[in-house]
Amino acid sequence: MSGAQNAVDIIGLNKWFKAFHVLKDINLSVARGERLVICGPSGSGKSTLIRCINGLEPHQEGKIVVEGAALTEEVGQVEAVRANVGMVFQQFNLFPHLTALENCTLAPMWVKKMPKAAAEKLAMQYLDRVHIPDQANKYPGQLSGGQQQRVAIARALTMEPRIMLFDEPTSALDPEMIKEVLETMVELAETGMTMLCVTHEMGFARTVANRVVFMDHGEIVEIAPPQEFFSNPKSERTKEFLSQIIR
């Protein structure tokens, strides 16, 4: 029944890149409103995993179900899933030839067929939510890194997705701007949004995550609530990783 439906169900996911086994037998379920932080050493497949969820990366074996809709080969299926899933990229990927407002209204107007006025109203709401309504008519080139990433978050939110994916959203930012973006993400978490976040920011994980997922060499090694994960990791590999990143 849809009442107990999970936001994301990943069953037996295996992905190869040429001959290289990138994701090994991933099984993961994310409940509605749950906030998941995925961490791991570089090359562990964590970015690849969330990129599979909205179809940016294809998978060869296994099943991915997003809000009840399976990601299949069917024509138009992937686009329907993507309209329900928002993504924020490490490199922001804002469209440089459009203003912040236009970046946000593009998809609602052309994918959801919203009229322009309604789209702009909605976009301004979200730009307000990320605390930069005054930058609405500026071009990305005129904004700081932190501001650009917040516009990217607003852009994803304007499609009113059920799930938000974050792929190392603060890794490309100068240190003084990481705080503003993390704060925005914390506020977003407090509204009950389902979030899957690949990040190295362990402070964020401790505050916000319901569960922390540790991945290494393409497989999920350990999943636990942050309390347990940081103070009492079970696997040796987890312990090694934590010792390297916690200063």
């Binding site: 294809p58 998978h59 060869q60 296994g62 099943k63 990601l71 080969e73 069917e74 024509v75």
Partner: peptide
């Protein structure tokens, strides 16, 4: 991508291409 049951063969992306 994984081949799922239940989709008519002519509606897959590969077939369209």
């Amino acid at each position: 991508m994984a081949v799922s049951s239940g989709i008519p063969w002519w509606r897959t992306r590969r077939m369209r291409d």
